[in-house]
Structures are given as C-alpha cells and as structure tokens.
Nucleic acid binder design. Sequence first.
DNA 1: ATGAAAGCGCTAACAC
DNA 2: GTGTTAGCGCTTTCAT
Lengths: 358, 358
Amino acid sequence: MGVSLKDVALRAGVSVKTVSNVVNHYPHVTPATRARVQHAIDELGYRPNLMARHLRKGRTGIIALAVPELGNPYFAEVAGAVIDAAARHEQTVLLDHTAGLREKEALVSQGFRAHVIDGLILSPIQLESEDLLARTAGPPMVLLGEREYDAPYDHIAIDNVAAARAAVRHLLDLGRSRIAFLGAREESARQPAHLRLSGWRQEIAASGGLARDALVAATDGFDRRDGAVAMAALLDRGERPDAVFAYNDLVALGAMRVLSERGLRVPEDIAVVGFDDVEEGRYAAVSLTTVAPDKHAIARLAVDCLLERIGAAGADPAPPPRRIRPGHRLVIRESTAGRPSRPRPPPGSWSGPGPGPG
Amino acid sequence: MGVSLKDVALRAGVSVKTVSNVVNHYPHVTPATRARVQHAIDELGYRPNLMARHLRKGRTGIIALAVPELGNPYFAEVAGAVIDAAARHEQTVLLDHTAGLREKEALVSQGFRAHVIDGLILSPIQLESEDLLARTAGPPMVLLGEREYDAPYDHIAIDNVAAARAAVRHLLDLGRSRIAFLGAREESARQPAHLRLSGWRQEIAASGGLARDALVAATDGFDRRDGAVAMAALLDRGERPDAVFAYNDLVALGAMRVLSERGLRVPEDIAVVGFDDVEEGRYAAVSLTTVAPDKHAIARLAVDCLLERIGAAGADPAPPPRRIRPGHRLVIRESTAGRPSRPRPPPGSWSGPGPGPG
DNA sequence: ATGAAAGCGCTAACAC
DNA sequence: GTGTTAGCGCTTTCAT
C-alpha cells in the first residue's frame, strides 16, 4: 500500500491531474498520454484510495444493511441478495445486526457510523415510530419488513395482510376450521406480528368462522425454539387446533418438531403453514408450505430505492416517501398437502417403511 | 451532515485542535474548556467524519469478511459472531460472498476494495495456494476454514481430521460397519473435503475395517440439494450403507430428507452424522448428530489475530504465520442415538402416533 | 489537452 | 493548556 496519484504522475512524467483524468475515464486525454499513464499505473500497481476519493466526493460507495439476526436464514438470504444487488451498482455492503433490540435499532437508525456509509437499509422489529421521528440527521434510509411507521421513509414490504389471508384461505380450503396462530406477542397494533395476525383474523371472519384468541400463541422471539415453546404451550393448555399458521418458517419448524415429538402427524392431524420460504423448509422431513416473498425483488428494490435517495440527497422538496410492495406467492408443500404419492421402493432388499416415530 | 470540527471550534470559540483533543479524549484539557466544547458538540450534533479521520490515520476501522455463501447457516452464524467480535473492538464488518468461486475468492484476496478495509478474513473453498502466493500487496489477511495452504497467512481452523475421526468413531461404536461419506468431490488432496474424507478413511482403517471408495459420494456443492442428490445416487447404484458421515449439516439434512422419502428410518436403518452444528439440525424432525466447531472462538480468534496483524503491519521481520485450532466437540442427537424415550401422550383425545411416513 | 493550486475533515508536530 | 500549520490522496476550479 502507499502508491499514490503523485507517484504515478512522477513516474509517467505528467501531472497528478492527468493521472486522475485517466483513472476517471475523462474523455479528453491524448491516447499517447493515456497509454503512458496506464503503463505507470500497471508498473506501480496503483489502486485509487477510496477513502480519499470519497472524502472529496462526499460519498463512500458503502451502504449499510441492518437486520435483526443473521442466524435467521431469511435475513441471511436477504442479506446475500442485497450484497449482490449492491455489487451490481459497485456498492459495498456493511452489515450490522440488531438482535431485534429496540435500543440497537434506534442506535443504527441514528447516525451510528454515518460518514462511513452513504445510506442505510434497516429491517426493524421493535423500533417505534417515535424513534424514527427522533432521527434528525443521518444518511438516507429505507425500511424493510413488516413493521409499519408514520415516518417519512421509503418502505419495502410485501402485502403482509394479503399474504397471511392467502395462507389461512389455503388452510380453510383444506377443510381446517381450528387454525392457530403462532407468533403474536400481545393484542396490540404495535406488536411485530400485527399484520399477519390481522390477516389471520380477517380471513377467518370472512369465512364465517370464529377467530378465537385462545388459538393465538405468544412467542418471545421468532426462532425455532420460540415456535417449539409456543406450540407446546398451546397443546398443554388443552387447545386442539387442526392447523397452524406461524409467523415465519422458523417458528413453524420449531412447532413441527414438537408435533412430531408428541406423535401428531403433519398434515394429517395438523396442517402447518409458515412464512418466508427459507431453503430449510424445502428439505424438512415434511416439507413446509409457506408464503414466499420475492427476496431478490426486495433486495433489488431496496438498493435501487436507496441509491435513488442518495442521488437525490438535498433535493427540495424531498420526494414523498414511497410504499413499495414486492410480490409474494403461496408455495404449497407437504405440510399441508401431504406426500404426493407413495415413496418409491428402496433399491435392493431394504425393509419397507418402519412403524413410525418412537 | 456537514458539521465539521471547524464549525464546533467556531461555536465554542476555541481552535480546531482543542475540539479534536476533546473528541479524542486527550487528557490535558481544562474541564471548563472541555465542557464548553462538549456543549457546542451537542448543540451542533457533531459526529466525527471517519473517512477523514482514517485518511489521516491510515486505518479505517473496517474489516472485511468474505464467506462462500450467506445462505449456508454455518457461514451466517459465523458472520454474526465475527460482527459481534469486531464490534467489541469498535471495528465494523464489511461482508462479501464469493459463491465459492475460485475467481471471486482470488479477486477478494487480492487488493479488491483495499484502502477501504484494514484487513480481511477470508474463508476459501476453491482457492489454490498459487492464488495466495500471487498476492503481492493488500492489507493483512487471515484464513478461515478447512482448506490448507502453503502460504504465509494465519489460519484458523479446527482439527478437521480429528473431528472427522471422532464422528466416524462414534458410528463404529454404534456397531455400524458400512459408513458412507457424502461430499467428496474427487480423489485429490486438493479437494475441499480432503481432510474430512481423510479422517473417515483413517478411522475406518484404524478399526480394521475397509474404507470402500464405492461408499464415497461426490457432490457439486455443499448444500441440502447436493446432499439429497448424492444420497439418492448412492442408493440408486445399489450401495447399502448403515451409516452416513456427511461433509456438513446441510448435506446431511438433504440426505436425511431422501432417506425419509424412501422409507428408510434414521437412525434405525441408517445413522447420520453431520458437521457444523447449525441451529437447524437441532430442530430437524430427527435431530442431527454433528461435529460442533466452537464458532464463537473461531470468530474471536480470527478478529484478534487480524487486529494483531494490522497493529504489527510493517514489522520486520513479520511474525511467522500461525496455525490456530479452536475447539470442537461431537454433539450426539437422535440421528445416531434415536429418540431417548417414548413421546409423552398428547393432551386430550388425540390419536396416537400414526403409521409412519408415506 | 494538460498543469497548478485549493481544499474535503481530520490529526500530528511544533509553537506559544 | 491551547493555537497554528502542514498534509493524508484525491477531485475540482481555474489557468494555460
């Protein structure tokens, strides 16, 4: 490290400006000069110092992405997609995770690490509107995910209510009538799962059924353990659902594990639908029916949207906040449809299917 | 944005240097001045411009982490741990993924995005020693993971051979004799799974058994699909293993899915051991026995090691490359040990366990 | 088409 | 204890 424009200029016998022109593809440079400069660059192995360049230009080429938890495959998959989308614009992604803590989310949304980043994509869980309103300065920001806010920020999220309704509709169409919801925290419009719970309620009501609160199970967080605990709690208090709609795939998978432990069959005894379409659900012993948000669209839209904001920074009046809804679809798998057919017999002299779990 | 040291100095009626002193906790400042400056800082909402600071200091406070695939929960979990470990040193992590492509790995290992980062943690899959040797400049780098190189870089990795042998030992102790290996690509010391395959071979040989090549199944990559395809291929060519040791948990989970489809019971018909201890394995319908690397130790050691290198940059002679082996342990779960006991009966009038898959 | 010089925001030397 | 100044590597007027 340490080869600067000046070194190259010295070597090529030109001025710094000329080298800069070559590096930045400034059109009006004699081919001869360009060649000489390029030669010097190659010889010295010159690489522009982005730090300095961006100090000058006021942009860093780095955008931050803050997700609750990288251990959640949904966010890991989205993060991967964001990195790819950003790379297509020659932007680098700086990753943070908030553990879903309101305090950390607020910290990130405020100018934490501003100056290093051109913009921020934040996927909040616990953050409240007032935290967002308290944000006075900081780089452009776009929001990702289910939480809704009364704050002037672009927001990328699928239509969670419609998606939840489609999931519940599917269960109703299967003839299920006692559909539990796993993952609600409390009876409040401020809770993270608000929209999906609301979709559950609406669709059951629309079908003429009764959305019993007793069939709603709270979770502390949204991972497999939470799903397992909530499912066990529901069963232990004597509820007998014939279907489960979970806040996300992780909760659904945790629930399915408990069902299997208790000798309940999926989907025969209880059908299960998740949300997120994480890879894992496709390969579960009983593959998981789920709502699949278009993750690549989400990532692309978030990056495009953010870069647009960054480009328009300082514009007056600022463009109004947008509400962008990427697509989603319901992916039906074995956890609601069952195994399509008899498994083909194993090769050789294998014994047939065993007597089941236990 | 746009409040600079100068603005604060003007406001507080002091010089830039004094403000800088306050910001950097320089000890010799009068409490009175400090208070006045701090007041001005708060009023103006001043945040230091890291870009400029680091241009000056020659360090950015950003380290890069390049993993093959964020969609692989192992790497996602490690990435999360690295972010946390870095945060404890007030370092930020810039994330890249290489898709396990040699070309991208080489690009990252060379000075791609140098100048922005102080150092690089790289987890290679396909990279070869010659690529590493070709690296002429660039920030300090430490390597992560199973691949071994003849290149002067610190390398953090558990003892893969010993870990693999422990896994195979466990299967042998269970009385299994036809133990397949899933995930080897070819018969070469250069292939990614080399060490684990070697452990498999050694332990079987040590037990007096025969490590048949026919029981080794190749995979293209290392995810669930690859595991499923490899398992199916192995069965389809008439092999009848009574145990499977997979390159990693994802491959193992994919294999288990195929076993379930074909009516083969785990562990009764085939015991399965994975590698990585991803969260998912704990909640699989049949929970997965696995080799658990100490991910937090890995992350911490990688960050510490890198920061040490960064601190010692330019030292002559450079400290010799280190080979650091974090701990690992075998976690025994149902895929080899079976369900510990009869599932407790479900509440109410539920029917008992069904007739099994299919 | 190219060169000279200023300055982005900051810290390190060196005054006072 | 605090102020002055130079310069990190780059881009950008403004000259030539």
